[in-house]
């Protein structure tokens, strides 16, 4: 096997991993702050994907421009979902929160999947633009532009989120609530609103990931579970509480999968990622980048 092939494979792994990282960011924030597990996160990614697909096909909107509709759209959907459903869950103590959010998320999965099948049919959809599969070639290594944009967008989102969490009122409120909601409440932070904003933010991030998923691969009503699982693995690999850590863990997972495929062949690629995850989980339950409090 040539050096070019090895480098090319690992590069592809890193680029696909950046998508894992983006998909996990929203889930991680919601999980860390609200202490609920939204198993319908993958379905939100799916909705974001369809949003871009239809914006492209009906309005002729470039997928990157469609983010201006899709991200706020998913933010609103997030608001509605939290307002109508998950807000009722966060009133419980932590144990019940997880359980009930799991159940509601599962019910939501059923509804959204079936609804999407009805509205959009079960066919695979993808967005193909003139630049879809364009690539730069450097020293015999090809850098696909669309995938590279995923990495860049990921980095921008990470930087922006860090700024948001550290510099803005809502960001500080979110961090304080994640740390200890009782203390935050005593400090005069409106916990309910913080939860609402956080959940909507998580949904918006899912929408962003959904656009990239559709542009780089395809979307169909049943992609949700697969992405929820990937996102969960990344979240646990990274541990809670670190935005750059979550993204980086996604990239690392992608690279690890590629490396394993080179070493053992393609059939065990997905498995190796999970096994690494299980090993890390049993040695370091708080994750690679998580604080010890998790």
């Amino acid at each position: 096997m040539s050096i070019e092939t090895i480098v090319q494979t690992l590069l592809f792994g890193a680029l696909i991993g950046s998508l894992y990282g983006l998909a996990a960011l929203g889930l991680s924030i919601v999980f860390g702050v609200l202490k609920i597990l939204n198993v319908a996160h993958g379905e939100l990614i799916m909705l974001g994907g369809y949003g871009s697909f239809w914006a492209f096909n009906l309005l002729g909107l470039d997928p990157y421009l469609s983010l201006l509709i899709v991200v706020p759209g998913l933010f609103l959907i997030g608001l509605a979902l939290h307002f109508g459903l998950f807000a009722r869950v966060v009133r419980f103590d932590e144990e019940d929160r997880i359980k009930n959010s799991l159940l509601i998320g599962f019910g939501l999965t059923l509804i959204l999947q079936t609804l999407a099948t009805h509205l959009f049919t079960a066919d695979e959809r993808s967005i193909t633009t003139s630049y879809s599969t364009a690539a730069w070639e450097i020293l015999g290594i090809r850098l696909p532009l669309v995938r590279f944009s995923g990495l860049i967008i990921g980095i921008i989102v990470v930087v922006a989120l860090r700024w948001f969490l550290r510099r803005t009122y809502w960001g500080k409120a979110i961090r304080a609530t994640a740390e200890d909601w009782r203390t935050a409440a005593l400090a005069g932070i409106d916990i309910r609103r913080t939860y609402l904003v956080t959940f909507a933010l998580g949904a918006a991030l899912a929408g962003l990931a959904g656009m990239l998923v559709t542009l780089q691969g395809s979307v169909s009503p049943n992609i949700g579970l697969q992405w929820t699982l990937k996102a969960l693995i990344v979240v646990v690999l990274a541990g809670l509480g670190s935005v750059p850590g979550t993204f980086l863990a996604g990239v690392l997972l992608g690279v690890a999968e590629s490396a394993s495929a080179l070493a053992f062949g393609g059939a065990y690629r997905e498995l190796v990622g999970i096994v690494i995850f299980l090993i890390i989980l049993s040695i370091r339950p708080q994750g690679l980048f998580g604080g010890s409090h998790a």
């Binding site: 597990l37 699982l229 969960l232 693995i233 646990v236 299980l278």
Partner: peptide, 16 residues
């Protein structure tokens, strides 16, 4: 593993 981590860990184990 505690609480949620047990849940996610078992989920991944089954998937593996």
């Amino acid at each position: 593993l505690r609480g949620t981590y047990f849940a996610i860990g078992t989920l991944a184990l089954a998937e593996a």
